[in-house]
Amino acid sequence: MRRILVSGALALAALGLGAVAVAAEHTELKHQHWHFKGPFGTYDRAAAQRGFQVYKDVCAACHSLNLVAYRNLIDLGLTEAQVKGIAAEITVPDIGDDGSAIERPARPSDRFKKPFPNELAAAAANGGKAPPDLSVIVKAREGGPDYLYSLLTSYVPFDKLTPEQIKEFNVTKDDNFNLVFPGHRIAMPPPLADDKVQYTDGTKATLDQEARDVVEFLAWASEPHLEARNRTGIRVILFMLALAGLMYAVKRQVWADKH
């Protein structure tokens, strides 16, 4: 019996490993400590708010965030008035009472405004390939937050490339070379740099800081319910451990006369 159980466990483990082994053959990612990792993880609100600023001032020029609404920012620790203010600064297209196309200030219930009216327009304005929507980008990439952080911080300028790299990956002066991007030639020019944004909380806006912050923000955007999930999970598992203990005692009692 025991041997069978062990084999079974090994079998399951091997199956799991098999599934994981599929990818992860790209360049080594820069593994970071994230505030939201692990069963007790929560989002670092200050970092995520700074990250929102990075998104708003930099990324939003090209990348949509279709699944997030302005009202969701309240989760990030902004007040309702602040959210209303942020939304009101943005005009969104709508249809007026007479059926004509109008522009009106955004409301908290509106989704984040798209930089381009549709995907074709986005592709046309970006050399043929639409910049991906960032709503679930952290879940949509192998490596998640580490990959995005590494991507944002692993650009190598053309003049710093070795001749071998230039030759192997067929890089020209107009290409953007990124160490972790599959194939290394990425359409997106380096989006972040030192002092690309001016943080309102006085944090020094280094490239590293901006990348970390925007990844924290995008992780939150990908999974706003993470904290509820962790909290519920801890409770459920503690409860079930107690129940399992009691069930085991009951089972032992019931079987006591048969062993």
Binding site: F239, L243, L246, M247, V250
Partner: peptide
């Protein structure tokens, strides 16, 4: 034991 388990 039965009652406690059932209740839980």
């Amino acid at each position: 034991l039965m009652v406690a388990t059932g209740a839980l």
